[in-house]
Design a protein around this nucleic acid. Sequence first.
DNA 1: TATGAATGAGCTTTCATTCAT
DNA 2: CATGAATGAAAGCTCATTCAT
Lengths: 201, 201, 201, 201
Amino acid sequence: MKGRGRHNAVVAAARRKQILDAASECFRRKGFRGASMMDISESAGLSTGHIYHYFENKEAIVEAVVDRGRPDLTDAAGAISSHSDLIEALLRSIDGKGGRDAPAVPALVLEVFAEASRNSLVARLFEAYERSLEKRLEGVLKSAQASGVIDQSADVDRLGRFLKVVLYGLIVHTAMVPGLGPAELRHVLDFFSDNTFWSSR
Amino acid sequence: MKGRGRHNAVVAAARRKQILDAASECFRRKGFRGASMMDISESAGLSTGHIYHYFENKEAIVEAVVDRGRPDLTDAAGAISSHSDLIEALLRSIDGKGGRDAPAVPALVLEVFAEASRNSLVARLFEAYERSLEKRLEGVLKSAQASGVIDQSADVDRLGRFLKVVLYGLIVHTAMVPGLGPAELRHVLDFFSDNTFWSSR
Amino acid sequence: MKGRGRHNAVVAAARRKQILDAASECFRRKGFRGASMMDISESAGLSTGHIYHYFENKEAIVEAVVDRGRPDLTDAAGAISSHSDLIEALLRSIDGKGGRDAPAVPALVLEVFAEASRNSLVARLFEAYERSLEKRLEGVLKSAQASGVIDQSADVDRLGRFLKVVLYGLIVHTAMVPGLGPAELRHVLDFFSDNTFWSSR
Amino acid sequence: MKGRGRHNAVVAAARRKQILDAASECFRRKGFRGASMMDISESAGLSTGHIYHYFENKEAIVEAVVDRGRPDLTDAAGAISSHSDLIEALLRSIDGKGGRDAPAVPALVLEVFAEASRNSLVARLFEAYERSLEKRLEGVLKSAQASGVIDQSADVDRLGRFLKVVLYGLIVHTAMVPGLGPAELRHVLDFFSDNTFWSSR
DNA sequence: TATGAATGAGCTTTCATTCAT
DNA sequence: CATGAATGAAAGCTCATTCAT
């Protein structure tokens, strides 16, 4: 029974992921309100009713999707020993590579931005998102400062706050301009590095 | 008949504004999809059916709301003779003071960002928004360069592109963080001016 | 005042005709339910509200349109001295030339047929239509019998009843088959005359 | 799963029939436009929304109702060995006994006639109806000719075209005159047989 | 566990009718 | 007489959610 229980738990986790993957894709394409439960169930390959075994309602799915989009902190502390490392680390914060369970697709993040301004639960989740992002930036910047990429005298807190805003802007920009790849994003960030406080160039 | 016609035109324009004001508020609070025609009509103080005398359908209202949020270019060319002037001009681009018929409320702009990625008409209007913003920034930066606030050797184009991203980020930030006022925004932008290419500080 | 009164009556009659003409056309194209009061008012070239000065409501317009479509009896008693005369007289009963104030356009008559089976007032008007048609046929047939075109021994009553059914069928056929002109209709009726009771051929 | 699938198919077919029966009755009483989806759903005994599991929209219901009213051809080739047989076969073409899945209720056929002149899809279905009727008449007449009921020299094509018109007229007549039973219809058709080309009387 | 039939509230939109001007 | 702004009651349709199987 215990073995079966554990097996069930594994299957249940897989089902939840299956549903959240489908939901994320639907939300990205149609928005939280535009995507119907049937869209999601068809996309996930199971029946509409079955979804309600894993999530209480649509709202719960939205929350779960928003929640797992939060940036992961574990791998962020990689060594930052050059400009390139820094830029790459920043880019990873928005291109989804730095996500936890799922890529933080920009178009979906925009949806979260919009939803957060009217859904208090999503707003709270967004705050967690923001905290994660700040922590991550702090880690990256301190690592960069430790290796001398950033000048010792730089105000890392202010720099972090500014960078957060820049990353938000990049998320918007990436979602809106279809063909925007990492190369173009790097150009924007390069400008940033050209005109500042870096110790070694 | 002519007098009546003119009177009607005036009243009609007032009604349209009345509807768009109500719709903007509803959209801001509930989103484009979440706000119902009844929400809008009640908020505007007229019957649901009556709205259809002024707008063909809900989509047309969305378009009109999005369209009138586009930044105005006319007053952007004020003289930029100091850092403060520049920062103020930039802030005006996002706090709605620089709008045309209506303030570009950040939360509403977020809605536009999200909607643009799936509604082609809104996407086109967003492009116009982006062009307006670019033009406006170009004007501001050239004015700043002319008066020596920005160094002659600065690459105004790249600077403009970067600033656009920063402004997008500020819009997101402003919409998400409730108590964020001009003072805090100025702090973020101050950082920008501290670390760059300015000729006179 | 009296002169003005009479003038007003003339204008009023003209307005009513103007409205009924427009309504007939709209009803023909969209059906009684499908045509809106706005369709009719636009087509008539006056305001929606103004129509209510001349007709109590839409129902009254329907009735008036149905009523004036009733075949006219006055000119039916023309001499029937040959087969051709007879066939032409019958054709006139359905092609609208025999109408009173307005042509009995087949597609509109179909609308009346359908409406009559559920609208008791239209049903009563249809009965009047049927009586008129019967009277007309009786007149035509008696005239034909008087001139020897139809045999004296023919049962004019039964023949009339049969012809009425044939005419209903022709109305349906004419409305449904787009290119159906008088020539084709004559062919159908010719068959009728080929195989019957005519005294002189 | 398979058993359930088959069961579902059976239930689904029953539901479709249930809906179409209810819709036919509603359409007959109120017309295609006059009958609302709520009328139909209440009459069918299920919820409004549920109907949309079986039909894409109201238009699809109209089509299905019109389509299944088309005369069936399979049983039309019964032997026609007497006048009575012929008359009965013709009557069966309009009284619904000769229909496929559902009786072709005259009042409903009138609705189709009227609708066909403005709804292109119904128009196409009506053409199929007309073809079916023609085929059926052709079969009946050839059978009658084979058994000598109709003279060998008769032009069966022209006769068929004429009969089609007569049948249309009878449909109109039947729908309009409430108490019209088979007996009266037979009288009208009897007249037809009295005055023509029959070989054996 | 899994299905999808079933519900009913709510959506956008249309339209006959009224009425202030 | 004449207008068309204004109303509100449906209309067709969608969809989150429930539940019998």
